[in-house]
Design a protein around this nucleic acid. Structure first.
Length: 434
RNA sequence: GGAGAGGUGGCCGAGUGGUCGAAGGCGACCGCUUGCUAAGCGGUUGUACGGGUAACACCGUACCGUGGGUUCAAAUCCCACCCUCUCCGCCA
C-alpha cells in the first residue's frame, strides 16, 4: 500500500464520522444534522460553549504559567548566585496561587467538555439509509410437506439443550447445550474459526471475557452500561461481545500503515443482561444472557474502510453459504445502529420454524470512533499520525445459527440433517436424532 | 494474599529540587563523504492542547506509570493507586 497523505481539509474527511472536537466547532451545522439522524439529544451548542470557555481559559492559564515559570527561573538564578531571593519568592507566591486557581477552573471545564464528548454517539455514514433496507438475499427458504417444529421443540425432542437445568442452575434465559447439541455448537465454532483463520487470513485471539470499564467505554459499550454484567467486588465487566476485547488489542499503541489491514478473530462467550427486553421473544435460544460468538475485527486505513467492511460482510456471509442457510443482508438506519457504529449491515438468517428472520451478524464500521477512545493510532508511510478505522462483525453468533440449522434442516421423521460442511466437525454424523 | 525491587523519549539507559523535553548510546531519516570492507563525518529525530498560518514556519503550555500533595520552582521530596519483575503462600 502506497503512502497516502491525508488532507483533512477535504470535505471527504470532514463529513466522515469522527468526533474530533475541532470538527464540531468548524462544522457545527453538519454535526447537528448528523446527530439528528441518530436522534441524539445532546446539544451541540452546549459543546461549543464549553469548548470556547475551555480554550479561553487555557490561553489565560498558559500565559500565567509562562510568567510563573520565568519568575521561578529568576529565583533559581538568584539562588545560584547566592543572592537574596526572599522578595521575589514572596511576589511569585501570589502568581503561583493565581495559576493554581485557574488550573482548577480549567480542569473542571475540561472534565465537562470530555464528558459531553464521550456521550456523543458516532456520526452516521452518508450511506446509512433512513429506514432499514434489505439490500440482498441469498438462498431459498426450505419447503416442508409437514408442519415444521420450532427449535425449542426440536431441542427437547432430541435432547440438544437442557433449558430446565439452565434455568434452575443459572436462571431464566440461560442455555445449556447437551450431547449432540454441545457437539453442534463446538462444530460451528471450529468451522468458523477454521474458515476465518485459514481462508480469510484472520489472526485468532482468545481474550479475557472480563474487561475494565475503560476498555468497555472505549468500545462504546458503557453507553449501555445497564446491559452489562458488573462484578460485585472488582471494577470489571463481562464483555457483551468479543468486539470489546479485539478493538482494544492496540490500545495506546501506534500501528503501522504497512501492517494494514490487521485482522483478528476471537471466539468467546458474550454476556448481556438484556434489561428491558422482558416480554419480547423469550423462547429457547433466541435471546439469552450468555451466548457464543465468533467475532471479526479489522483495523483499516481510513480511506480503505469500505474494502474492509465488504470483506467482513462477505466473510460472515460465507458461513451461511457453507451451511446453506438462506439469509438477507440489511443496511441499518442510524437509529438502529449501535452507539459506536457509523454504518451497520445486519445479516438475518431464515428460521423455518419461527418463520422469521433472525439476526446472526452485525457488521459495523466504527470509523475512528473507537480508535480515538482507546488511543490506537496509525503511523502512515509518510510519517504522519492519524487514527485508523476499526471495523467489526460477527462471524457469526451461534444460538440463532443453531436455531436456523435445527429448524431448516428438520426432517419428516423428526431428525435433523447435518449440513455437509459441518459433518467433518461432527464425527461424520449425517443426522442428529436418527 | 505477604515481602522486596522497579516503572524516564521508538528502544537501551543517565539524571544533583532550579540552567531538563530531559545526558549518552542504539535505531531511523536527511545531507556529505567514499578505493577498501553492510565504513566515516555532520545534521535531524516525540505527543497533546491552545495560539498562529492559505498551508508551512513559528510561539505558549503540558507530558519522565496514574492521581493528589509540599514548594516561588518537582523526573527529582511526600501520600495513594496501577502495572511489571523476584521470592513466599494459594491454586486449575
Amino acid at each position: 500500500m502506497g503512502c497516502v497523505p491525508v488532507d483533512i481539509s477535504t470535505p471527504f474527511i470532514i463529513l466522515y464520522p469522527m468526533i474530533d472536537p475541532r470538527k464540531i466547532r468548524e462544522n457545527p451545522d453538519e454535526i447537528r444534522k448528523l446527530l439528528a439522524r441518530r436522534r441524539c439529544p445532546i446539544s451541540v451548542d452546549e459543546i461549543l460553549a464549553v469548548d470556547e470557555k475551555r480554550r479561553k481559559l487555557q490561553a489565560e492559564r498558559d500565559t500565567l504559567r509562562h510568567d510563573l515559570k520565568q519568575a521561578s527561573d529568576a529565583i533559581g538564578k538568584l539562588k545560584r548566585e547566592s543572592k537574596d531571593a526572599s522578595e521575589a519568592m514572596a511576589k511569585t507566591k501570589e502568581l503561583s496561587a493565581k495559576t493554581k486557581e485557574l488550573d482548577g477552573k480549567l480542569s473542571e471545564i475540561e472534565a465537562r467538555f470530555e464528558e459531553l464528548l464521550w456521550q456523543l454517539p458516532n456520526l452516521p455514514d452518508p450511506d446509512a439509509p433512513d429506514e432499514d433496507t434489505v439490500i440482498r438475499s441469498w438462498g431459498s427458504k426450505p419447503e416442508f410437506d409437514f408442519q415444521p417444529a420450532d427449535h425449542v421443540t426440536i431441542c427437547e425432542r432430541l435432547g440438544l439443550c437442557d433449558f430446565r437445568y439452565a434455568a434452575s442452575y443459572a436462571g431464566a434465559r440461560f442455555a445449556a447445550y447437551t450431547g449432540d447439541g454441545a457437539l453442534l455448537l463446538r462444530a460451528l465454532v471450529n468451522l468458523c474459526l477454521d474458515l476465518h483463520t485459514r481462508e480469510h487470513g484472520y489472526k485468532e485471539v482468545f481474550p479475557p471475557v472480563l474487561a475494565r470499564a475503560e476498555s468497555a467505554n472505549a468500545a462504546g459499550q458503557l453507553s449501555k452500561l445497564e446491559d452489562m454484567y458488573a462484578l460485585a467486588d472488582d471494577p470489571l465487566y463481562l464483555i457483551p461481545t468479543s468486539e470489546t476485547a479485539l478493538i482494544n488489542l492496540h490500545m495506546r499503541q501506534e500501528i503501522k500503515e504497512e501492517d494494514l489491514p490487521l485482522k483478528y478473530t476471537a471466539y468467546t462467550s458474550c454476556f448481556r443482561r438484556e434489561a428491558g427486553t422482558y416480554g419480547t421473544q423469550t423462547k429457547g435460544l433466541f435471546r439469552i444472557h450468555q451466548f457464543e460468538k465468533v467475532e471479526l475485527v479489522q483495523f483499516a486505513h481510513p480511506e480503505h474502510w469500505r474494502e474492509a467492511f465488504d470483506e467482513i460482510l462477505s466473510n460472515a456471509e460465507k458461513v451461511l453459504q457453507l451451511l446453506e442457510l438462506p439469509y438477507r443482508v440489511k443496511a441499518l438506519s442510524p437509529t438502529e445502529a449501535a452507539f459506536q457504529a457509523s454504518l451497520t449491515f445486519d445479516i438475518d438468517v431464515w428460521a423455518a420454524g419461527a418463520e422469521d428472520w433472525l439476526e446472526v451478524s452485525s457488521i459495523s464500521n466504527c470509523a475512528d470512533f473507537q480508535a480515538r477512545r482507546n488511543k490506537t493510532r496509525l503511523r502512515l508511510a509518510d510519517g504522519s499520525l492519524i487514527y485508523p478505522h476499526i471495523l467489526n462483525g460477527s462471524g457469526t453468533a451461534f444460538p440463532r445459527l443453531i436455531i436456523a440449522i435445527l429448524e431448516n434442516y428438520q426432517q419428516a421423521d423428526g431428525s435433523i440433517k447435518v449440513p455437509d460442511a459441518l459433518r467433518p466437525y461432527m464425527d461424520g454424523k449425517e443426522h442428529l436424532g436418527r
